[in-house]
């Protein structure tokens, strides 16, 4: 991560922590609405990679605040596909947090005289969860790269947005199921933080395009490319 993005993330973490009490106001005041506005227009001049990094933090710290709308407000008009793209960033952050909480929990909670994480069945489940998080992160990063290469043109990045939102949606089922399973009853309480990421994940799965919506859309696009054409498009779009 570049030093500038590192700083941006530090700011986001601090501001979003305040926003947990103060609502969206501190986030507005800190200027996150200008993140994607060019420097010439008095904005921060960030790219989608920056937005993605900030949204990952928002997905954990302030999943219920309209940070996506705020960040996208710098662009006009905003196609719904960009809202889907932004949601992927939130989802990547929340899924990563679900993994982190799960690892911490199985390392501390003891049963049968050992931490749960020492049981192979638990290890194998968490490996599956980690793979989903890795897939989601990779999809979000590749989508960001395409958006930045096309100057945030959602139409030119249609394949990547569809694929990334679909992949993120599909990760939700596995991530929430395994994270809750390894937590046991404590993860089902209001007091414990797991639901702060799993309920938003469930919600984001249905927002800005369900699995079926994006799958059918992407499927039609790929059908139009043909079998060989898919490979040619995949490689050409990333080069």
């Amino acid at each position: 991560m570049s030093a500038a993005r590192e700083m941006l993330c530090d700011t986001a973490r601090a501001v979003f922590a305040d926003a947990q009490e103060g609502g969206i106001a501190p986030i507005e005041t800190a200027g996150f609405g200008l993140l994607l506005v060019s420097e010439a227009d008095g904005g921060f001049g960030g790219d989608w990679g920056d937005a993605n990094a900030v949204l990952r933090i928002a997905g954990v710290a302030v999943p219920d605040l309209p940070v996506t709308d705020l960040i996208l407000s710098g662009l006009a008009p905003v196609p719904d596909a960009l809202r889907a793209a932004a949601t992927v960033g939130l989802m990547a952050g929340a899924a990563g947090q679900a993994l982190g909480l799960s690892i911490e929990h199985v390392n501390t909670r003891q049963q049968f005289g050992r931490p749960l994480g020492k049981f192979q069945a638990v290890q194998q489940s968490l490996a599956v969860l980690a793979c989903e998080v890795a897939a989601l992160d990779a999809a979000a990063a590749a989508m960001a790269a395409r958006l930045d290469a096309t100057g945030l043109d959602a139409e030119a990045a249609d394949f990547e947005i569809a694929a990334a939102k679909l992949r993120a949606n599909r990760a939700v089922g596995v991530v929430t199921a395994i994270a809750h399973q390894v937590h046991g009853a404590i993860g089902f309480t209001r007091e414990y933080d797991l639901h702060r990421v799993t309920i938003p994940l469930m919600r984001w799965r249905s927002m800005h395009g369900s699995d079926a919506y994006w799958a059918e859309r992407l499927g039609r696009q790929v059908a139009g490319l043909g079998g060989r054409g898919l490979w040619e498009a995949l490689t050409a779009r990333a080069e």
Partner: peptide, 24 residues
């Protein structure tokens, strides 16, 4: 070029997974 919905969904899901795997 104009698959039935169930087939389009399958192709879309496989394409998304393949694209993701390529990134990884």
């Amino acid at each position: 070029p104009d698959p039935a919905p169930a087939l389009a969904v399958l192709i879309g899901e496989l394409a998304a997974e393949m694209w993701t795997l390529r990134q990884l």
